[in-house]
């Protein structure tokens, strides 16, 4: 779609720019400032240049946490995006069924994140939790506090349970925004359900799915509260994701400089990955139109 060229459109954007810039730029600059100093106290700082960055980049435990994080976010996207689209396609489009489905699907999203972790601790306990005792009842020993694999399964289950609804709501809203005329035309042409999905629904959902993929990627990459409450990063280090490692370093060792450098690197990784995703998704979109 061609757009009108008019720099006066900036006036419509200024409020958003100001309100975001206030909270964004000053804290970011402060953290950059911390990251190049060794801080002993408010008046006792030494400029150390890129030392903290070098230290962070050669930290083996950080590499391990990064690999875990990549695997986790990759699995999250692979499971949640297709599942979310599938559920959105299945949900009733109108009537009381649509209202009920929307309310039900939104429920997990509305629970504060620390509470989600707590609920899943109880839910997965072998003695008093529903799922924990059900799995053990089937004869499979399952304990997320002892076995790494079980901890991973638990965190993934919780993550899929918690966040697939976001993809569902986005995809559902995208589907609802498709004018009925498109489907009528497809029906007249005798299009199959698959080609309706492939050539009408999927391209029309591109915008919302782009947001859903980017959101799920960045939020899962920054995930902290839920796995921290549920497993505390353990057993061992098996569910120590990047944020958990960062907080262990920042709070545990009280080292603001290295933690800041780590934060900046972390931020740049997310930024780069999102930019690549975004460019790729834009290209996919233009490919569809040809």
């Amino acid at each position: 779609m061609n757009k009108w060229e008019d720099n006066k459109a900036w006036f419509l954007v200024i409020p958003v720019f100001l309100i975001v810039a206030v909270s964004a730029i000053i804290p970011l600059m402060t953290v950059v400032n911390y990251s190049i100093q060794d801080i002993f106290g408010p008046d006792n700082r030494i400029f150390v240049g890129i030392e903290w960055y070098q230290e962070a980049l050669s930290d083996h435990r950080l590499h391990a946490a990064f690999q875990r994080q990549l695997l986790f976010s990759g699995l999250v996207l692979l499971i949640e995006i297709p599942l979310g689209i599938l559920i959105a396609l299945t949900m009733p489009k109108r009537g009381w069924g649509a209202s009920l489905s929307l309310v039900l699907v939104a429920l997990p999203l509305l629970i504060p994140w620390n509470v989600i972790g707590t609920i899943w601790i109880i839910f997965m306990r072998p003695d008093i939790g529903l799922l924990g005792s059900a799995i053990n009842g089937l004869g499979i020993p399952f304990d997320h506090t002892a076995a790494s694999l079980d901890a991973w399964v638990t965190v993934m289950l919780m993550e899929v349970w918690h966040w697939t609804p976001l993809v569902v709501l986005m995809a559902y809203a995208g589907l609802q925004a498709i004018p009925e005329a498109y489907f009528q035309a497809a029906r007249i042409d005798g299009a199959s359900a698959w080609s309706v999905f492939r050539y009408i629904q999927l391209p029309k959902m591109r915008g919302v799915l782009t947001i859903a993929i980017l959101l799920r990627f960045m939020d899962s990459f920054l995930i902290y509260a839920e796995p921290f409450v549920l497993t505390g990063g353990g057993p061992g280090n098996s569910t120590t994701f990047l944020s958990i490692y960062l907080v262990k370093q920042a709070v545990g060792q009280f080292d603001l400089g290295p933690a800041s450098a780590f934060s900046i690197i972390y931020f740049l990784i997310v930024l780069l990955a999102c930019w690549i995703f975004y460019q790729a998704l834009l290209k996919v979109g233009t490919g569809d139109k040809q």
Partner: peptide, 26 residues
Amino acid sequence: SRYSFLGDKHLFFWLLTNRMAPPAVF
């Protein structure tokens, strides 16, 4: 969605980058 103006694409992506910082140290 309707206008193209100076820096529009960069500004649009910049907006989203504000969600990408790990909160702990910030």
